[in-house]
Design a protein around this nucleic acid. Structure first.
Lengths: 358, 358
DNA sequence: GCGTGCCGGGCAAACGTTTTCTCATTTGCC
DNA sequence: GGCAAATGAGAAAACGTTTGCCCGGCACGC
């Protein structure tokens, strides 16, 4: 069933059907009604592909994430889809799963389907992703990418704000030895978080040398806690580069019978949905996924609907904020802060020996 | 840049370019090479929409879920996407968020984009979804839908198997008073799980009357535990209709200082990713999301590539199995099974008063 | 040497829309 | 009442592919 069928039955030309459907005001209301009647009767839906072909716009936005099973993304995808529905767009969803081949295939698929814009939320600078898309002048929005690229929109995340709040919150709870579990340092975002931690610590006269490297996954958090516990200068609080890491820390603490928050305060980062559901509920720095998705979508829309001159550089900012739940408490004072999992209590305290392992 | 541009530069006709790209064997290898050279040089990608228009097939599969933020789905989406990439399909992802308007819009979008097939994984029978799609003879695959619909593929889930394993596991741990927290009973899947529980209990001579209704969400689990604790005939083990419910139970237990698994064994259902990460890690019935996605995709592929005569009914089955983690233990014997959260220890025990509230 | 077959490649139609251009009809004005 | 202008609808081109059909050239057989 196509537009000609409708035209035939409504006894008008296809042009009129097209105009009626697209609500072009010049068409006679009488005729329009006749057309709509037939359209409804037959349950006709225009063929979007034919439409896209002539219009030169597909009304599809690409969305590239690293993996769906990463709990950071579902919220983003949901919001993105909500917005897509509202604005009559479709979304072409793609994941790189950290595989160069998949990144390439992602880009190829985007180009083949002639998307109108792409939001790249992988938190890594995938140079390969850029090249082909930029070459075709596809509107892009990145998050956390380097400043040298122009002609593409950019979402800058203010890590400093939330992390400062977290550090000061812990300090207010009388914590002095605050550790940081960093993420994989090839990620810009992980690097930025670590730097924000350092700055926030020195700012209030604490030395930021209790830093351990994780991997932004549960396992990394578990290892990190073990590592931190084996140092002589144990922390009373741990700030983590993301929530999964924090959950790993909590999990490992549980296994070692370290009580959270009584014996160890834990703070996460991201505020994924899951953070509410841990035991105890996780105090964490919120980087609103909904807001991020919203900004990204709006950025593409701006680019495409041409609100602003598109040759200038577009910057957006996303703030971060501490949200308090139940995984932090006053530091234990007086006694040794927490029971040793093993009997290494007697080893002499070496100062500042807790530099990252790798 | 289009196929004509390539043709011009390679000094052949567009027909030859098309044939070369699609690897039609009749084209002279010499020419083909010339074409490919130009294609690579210019970075040409065929326009999928034009292709779809003439082929009458879009190479897009629709995937309808209830909501992305439901932790059951990310794994499914990921697997679906992996398979799509492998098979050169695109996926049109849509969520109903339990809203009739959104369901309708989902269907409209699927039809407008002329998808080649739709997998409907909402676990509800959305009649409205069906009608339009069936009318257009779009291949469909459903999960858990009633048996009266024909011409569409169906994935039946064997709830009984896993739930029986769970019940028998608990029984083997000397539990006698095993409660069940059901899901919302308008869901077919929730109903089936409850029935499977009843059958498994009576099968081994236990009476399945400790049943409480939840909502498949965290809150439902929390309420359910409160409700169960306020009865005189308290369970020593709780089997839940899904993992989120179980996590709610664990969370509430934590608040009441009920130790899991020592004082209460908890079993979930689904085995979402998150089940591994709870404290303690959740023993649960696995209904493999990856497998489910795989079956759904394959079903569509079969339908579309026409492996089998498509007029017959296609049934697929997905099994369920218990996976043991750390949230179950031997029932406490002798003493009263768990401390009362409030002082209602003195109330006289009423027999079998624990029928569902609603 | 010529006719027959076969093989490979080009021409052009088709897919289902939108939109420009043109034309017929009505309206308005003098 | 006649002419110009305005209005509304239809014919046809265009979007970028695939593919059926035809045709030219070459090899082969007689």
């Amino acid at each position: 069933m196509d537009i000609r069928e409708i035209a035939r039955r409504a006894k008008v030309s296809t042009a009129t059907v097209s105009r009626a459907i697209n609500r072009v005001p010049t068409v006679d209301p009488q005729l329009a009604k006749r057309v709509w009647k037939v359209v409804d009767e037959l349950g006709y839906y225009p063929n979007t592909q034919a439409r896209a072909l002539v219009l030169g716009r597909s009304r599809i936005f690409g969305l590239i994430v690293s993996e769906f099973t990463n709990p950071f993304f579902p919220e983003i995808v949901q919001t993105f889809e909500n917005l897509a529905v509202e604005n009559n767009y479709e979304i072409l969803l793609t994941s790189t799963v950290h595989d160069p081949k998949r990144m390439e295939s992602s880009v190829r698929r985007m180009i083949e389907r002639r998307v109108d814009g792409v939001a790249i939320l992988t938190f890594g600078m995938e140079e390969t992703l850029l090249e082909h898309l930029r070459y075709r002048k596809v509107p892009l929005v990145f998050v956390d990418v380097g400043p040298d690229v122009r002609g593409i929109a950019n979402i800058r995340i203010n890590y400093q704000n939330g992390i400062r709040q977290a550090v000061q919150h812990l300090a207010a709870l009388r914590h002095r030895r605050i550790a940081f579990v960093a993420g994989p340092l090839h990620l810009k975002s992980a690097l930025a978080r670590r730097e924000a931690f350092k700055a926030s610590m020195t700012e209030i006269g604490l030395s930021p040398d209790l830093i351990v490297v994780g991997d932004h996954r549960l396992e990394g958090g578990m290892h990190a806690l073990v590592e931190l516990m084996s140092t002589s200068n144990r922390p009373t609080a741990v700030l983590c580069s993301n929530d999964m890491t924090a959950i790993g820390v909590i999990r490992e603490a549980y296994d070692h019978k370290i009580k959270i928050p009584e014996q160890l305060s834990v703070v996460g980062f991201d505020d994924i949905r899951l953070a509410e559901f841990t035991t105890p509920p996780l105090t964490t720095v919120q980087m609103s996924q909904e807001e991020l998705a919203r900004i990204a979508f709006q950025a593409l829309l701006n680019e495409v609907e041409g609100e602003r001159p598109s040759h200038e550089r577009h910057e957006y900012e996303l703030n971060t904020n501490l949200v308090l739940r139940s995984s932090t408490a006053l530091a234990q004072t007086g006694r040794f802060p927490m029971p040793s999992p093993k009997a290494n209590r007697g080893t002499p305290a070496r100062k500042a020996s807790s530099v990252p392992r790798r």
